[in-house]
């Protein structure tokens, strides 16, 4: 069976053919037993799916849909403010700690070495995680569109 008749078969089942296409398909149908078998199978499938519908959700959930979505957008804005605030406070705290650590002659050497290493490691991990998330997001939005 040619690719053209396969496409026409799909369109015939769904009533999507033009008069000329329908005529062409029916002409082929009268000659091809294979096409008739497939048509019968597809019509049966269509009949099965026509008698079914997806379950809907209760009206009160639809009514509260916008409200719940709005709360989520608010939470998103809240998280942004919270994260920015937390970064500012953390930077200020770290600055003070480092300032005291390196201006205090009595500060132990192990702390003067260990704390900067801990901070630099933390920043590297944070940047690496942020970069991974950014790449994942880009990939998800553009390259994984499989069509």
């Amino acid at each position: 069976m040619s690719e053209n008749y396969r496409e026409l078969l799909a369109g015939y089942v769904d009533g999507e053919l033009t008069d000329a296409e329908k005529l062409e398909f029916e002409r082929e149908l009268s000659h091809s037993a294979e096409l008739r078998t497939e048509l019968e199978e597809f019509m049966k499938l269509k009949e099965v799916t026509n008698g079914m519908r997806y379950a809907d959700i209760p009206d009160q959930i639809w009514e509260s849909y916008w409200e719940s979505l709005y709360k989520k957008t608010e939470r998103g804005v809240g998280w942004i403010f919270f994260s920015v605030g937390a970064i500012i406070v953390a930077c200020f705290g770290l600055y003070n700690i480092f300032y005291k650590l390196f201006t205090d002659p009595d500060a132990p050497l192990w702390l003067q070495i260990g704390l900067p290493l801990l901070s630099v490691g933390g920043v590297i991990l944070l940047v690496s995680y942020a970069r991974e998330r950014l790449f994942a997001r880009k990939r998800e939005r553009y390259t994984e569109v499989e069509r």
Partner: peptide, 24 residues
Amino acid sequence: MLDIPRGTVMSRLYYARKRLAKLM
């Protein structure tokens, strides 16, 4: 919706139905 030509819709539907009927 899928940003594909109409002919591709028909062709994809044919093969998808064929596989669905077989699985059923």
